[in-house]
Amino acid sequence: MSEPTHERPEIVNTLNTHEFAVIQAPHSRWRRLCDNGAFRKTLVLVVLMVIWEVYARALANPLLFPTFSATVGALLSALVTGELPRAAAATLILLFKGYLAGLLLAALLTAFASMTRIGADILETLTAMFNPLPSIALLPLALIWFGLGEGSIIFVLIHAVVWAVALNAFAGFRSVSPTLKMVGRNYGLSRAGFVLRILIPGAFPSILTGLKIGWAFAWRTLIAAELVFGVSSGSGGLGWYIYQSKNQLEIPAVFAGLLTVILFGLSVENLVFRVIEKHTVRRWGMAS
C-alpha cells in the first residue's frame, strides 16, 4: 500500500552576488525616441501634411483643394495683416466667457446634486433631456431671447458645456471610494475640507474628462454659431473669417481658418489637458 518514493538529493545553491553582465541598463537612444509619444504624434502630423501636399498637387485645383504650402502661405499672410489673430482673439474671448459660465453653473448643479437626493434626480433628468440636444439648435431661440449679440452665443455655449461637465463631475463624486470618504471623516475634516481634500481629488479623473468634453463641445458650438450668425456677434470670429473667405472665393484662407481651429484644438489638448493630466491623475496612478 505504500506509495513509491523517489530518493532525490536536496539542492541548496550559494547565490551569485557579482559577475552579472547586466542588471539594469538605460535604453538605447532610438528606443527612447520611439517611446516618446510627442515624437510619434509629430510623425503622424508630418505624414498627414505630406499626403495633403501630394494629393493637392495631383488634383491641381486650388479652388477646391489648395495645397498645404498655399494654406500655410495664406495663414502666414493673414497672421501678418492681423486679420486672423483678431478673429481668433474674438473667438477665444467669447469661448472663455461661455466655458467659464458653463463650468460655474455645472459646479452649482453638481454641488446641489451631491448634497440632496432630489438634486441628483433633477440633475439626472435634466441631463437626459438636454444633453442630446445640439446647442446650435437653440441658437434661433437664443437670438429671439437675447438679441443679436454676445448674449445669445454665450447662452448656447453654456448649454454646450454644462451638461457634459455636470454629468461627469457628479459621476466622479459618486465613484469616490467609501473607504476614502471614511478616512476623511475619521481624521475630522471640516465640510469644506472634506470636499476640497477628498471629494474633488477623488473625482478628479472624471472631472477632467468632463472638462475636456465640455471644451470640445464649446469649440464646435462656437465655430458653428459664428459660421451661421457670425456677423451678429459684432466682432467677427474665426467662423466668420472662414465664412467670409469662402464668399470671396479665397479658398486657401478658408483652409487657413480651419487649420487655425485645428491648431487650437491640438495645442489645448496637448499643452493644457495633457499637462494637467500628467501632473495629477497619471502621477497619482488614477488614470483610467
Binding site: 471610494s177 473607504t179 476614502l180 471614511m182 478616512v183 481634500r197 477628498i198 481629488p201 478628479f204 495629477t280 497619482w284 496612478g285 488614477m286
Partner: peptide
C-alpha cells in the same frame, strides 16, 4: 482596503 491612502 488598500485604497485608504489618498492616491494624490
Amino acid at each position: 482596503e488598500f485604497d485608504q491612502l489618498l492616491p494624490w
